[in-house]
Nucleic acid binder design. Structure first.
Lengths: 166, 166
DNA sequence: AATAAGATTCAGTGTTGCCTGAACGAACTG
DNA sequence: CAGTTCGTTCAGGCAACACTGAATCTTATT
């Protein structure tokens, strides 16, 4: 029997669930996705208990998943004076960690090909050529993507200085 | 008991296995990853039976997975005159389908945020703002990435005309 | 038409990994 | 220093999924 989640704005709950489903296809656990979605739509940081109650999940899962998301740079801890509970919020610079995560996986694959031992690459020139081309494309695109992220950083930094604390 | 895979160059088999493991973290099945890895390192297209024997998997799995990979644009069928078996090979323009696949997932997420009903976005200005910024960043980067892929296409096309069939 | 060769589908099985309750640990408070 | 409040860890249950063997479908061949 599913535990009852605290009543939440219906449309919000639904959106959280859709985000969770999406995250699941990205290799996260569903609860991880729910946590992310919930925090994305929360004005204030939330405590473990708050998340557990809201999402209808055990505190154990919340604890595990929040820390996993934190390790990946998606969540941050936020404290409150005179309160020793842990509060979580999505990283203010949110888009970047998720982008970086993907690029990392990508790089790992390139690395795999680069480390391919010569004999495994096959004596075949055809195979060798295919691997080289693949690798070249990956290098090119990874570099371009890195640049694009860099450009975004500069751009958003500039906007911030132009209208600080809009 | 694991079925015995046909003997293969040891280092090749190992590389295939590493690629498979990587693919598994990307949401593919392990056998799907093995098929991809094996074909990436194969000079010639391979038949279903060939793959099954080589990878020590049932033909049923091979059939299912190859078609799944084909649907995603990662594999292509290749025929042989006077042979009605189906042969598979990795798409010659390999890097692109995998890149596009990722961008697609990305776009799906942006879409999710864009479709966020106003009330779900929260009456909160803070939340609204966060969503807007996230969306803006995604749009920017998606556009940039698309351009980068475009540039690569042009570049490789040019190289081909300069030295056809190097 | 009958047979055969190949590919696909499907029900069943085994494994993986998520999630939970409960135990444990750590840090504050009176 | 007891008691409390949080957070984390861990063994186990359970659902989901990949993979398989066997049945089915398709297409060629004699």
């Amino acid at each position: 029997m599913p535990r009852r989640a605290a009543t939440l704005q219906a449309s919000t709950a639904q959106l959280v669930e859709r985000i969770a489903l999406f995250f699941e296809t990205e290799g996260f656990s569903r609860i991880g996705g729910r946590i992310f979605g919930r925090l994305l739509l929360s004005e204030d940081p939330m405590s473990l208990d708050g998340l557990a109650a809201d999402l209808g999940a055990s505190k154990a899962s919340i604890s595990t998943e929040t820390r996993a998301l934190e390790r990946r740079g998606i969540l941050e801890r936020a404290g409150r004076p005179g309160d020793r509970r842990v509060y979580y919020q999505v990283t203010p610079t949110l888009p970047m960690p998720t982008m970086e995560l993907r690029l990392d996986r990508w790089r790992r694959f390139s690395q795999l090909l680069e480390d391919a031992p010569a004999d495994a690459a096959g004596a075949s020139a055809v195979v060798r050529r295919r691997l080289d081309e693949t690798l070249e494309a990956h290098r090119f695109l990874l570099a371009e993507f890195g640049d694009a992220i860099e450009r975004w950083h500069r751009r958003s930094a500039q906007i911030l200085t132009m209208r600080p604390r809009r």
